[in-house]
């Protein structure tokens, strides 16, 4: 942390230090990265169990539909791209650019979830359910946990969209969008890993 940016207010009143916006944002991001670190460990445990189930029940994988999920992966990658473009937009003071990016993110995230539900339906019809085997349990818990993160991300993007409509974010104040971006990109990173391990490997 850069001490040069620290300002001291009210020292004569005995109130101690206040911090600059840059330091405040740095601490928020640090806290958010700690949260992401904990999520990495949770997903690692789920992946560890899934990889074991994948070895023990290879026949279950025959029912996976790669092209559909590849398309879903493309949607998530596109949504991440929208979020970073939205961040740059608001950093330049472009409110409409941010609003558009957030709305597209909401739409793409929702389609992703819709396709995931469709995939679950197909998989269930082939007899792979949450309780049918260790593979089914690991598959649904891991992808479901990820899908839950996407759902929360969609709600967060929608909330941010309405705040953006009210002009809450500005070129100087956009840490909320950056933190949302960290969350959303992490969800994207997790899917990149899950997509490779579940559907392609």
């Amino acid at each position: 942390m850069n001490a040069a940016h620290t300002s001291v207010h009210g020292a004569e009143h005995g109130h101690g230090h206040s911090i600059s916006n840059e330091q405040h944002n740095h601490m928020l991001k640090f806290g958010w990265w700690l949260y992401i670190a904990s999520e990495v460990m949770i997903f690692s445990s789920l992946i560890a169990v899934f990889m074991l189930a994948k070895r023990l029940y290879p026949a279950e994988e025959e029912h996976l539909v790669l092209p559909l999920v590849a398309f879903n992966t493309f949607l998530l990658l596109t949504s991440s791209w929208m979020v970073v473009r939205g961040l740059v937009s608001i950093q330049r003071g472009d409110q409409v650019g941010l609003q558009r990016a957030l709305m597209i993110t909401v739409i793409l995230g929702s389609i992703f979830l819709g396709i995931q539900i469709y995939e679950y339906n197909e998989f269930t019809h082939h007899g792979v359910t949450l309780t049918s085997s260790m593979y089914g349990s690991a598959f649904y818990i891991m992808t479901g946990f990820h899908g839950f993160h996407v759902f929360i991300g969609v709600l967060w993007a929608l909330w941010a969209f309405f705040k953006a409509l009210n002009g809450h974010y500005t070129a100087e104040n956009n840490i909320g969008i950056e933190l949302f971006g960290l969350y959303w990109h992490f969800v994207d990173v997790v899917w990149v890993v899950l997509f490779t391990l579940i559907y392609v490997m």
């Binding site: 640090f30 992401i36 670190a37 904990s38 460990m41 690692s44 445990s45 992946i47 560890a48 169990v49």
Partner: peptide, 22 residues
């Protein structure tokens, strides 16, 4: 760079968990 370490260390630990279980 602190953020990078906060991310990389759990990734390495997670990798160890995955490989250990296998």
């Amino acid at each position: 760079p602190l953020f990078t370490w906060v991310f990389i260390l759990p990734v390495l630990m997670g990798l160890a968990v995955v490989l250990s279980l296998q």
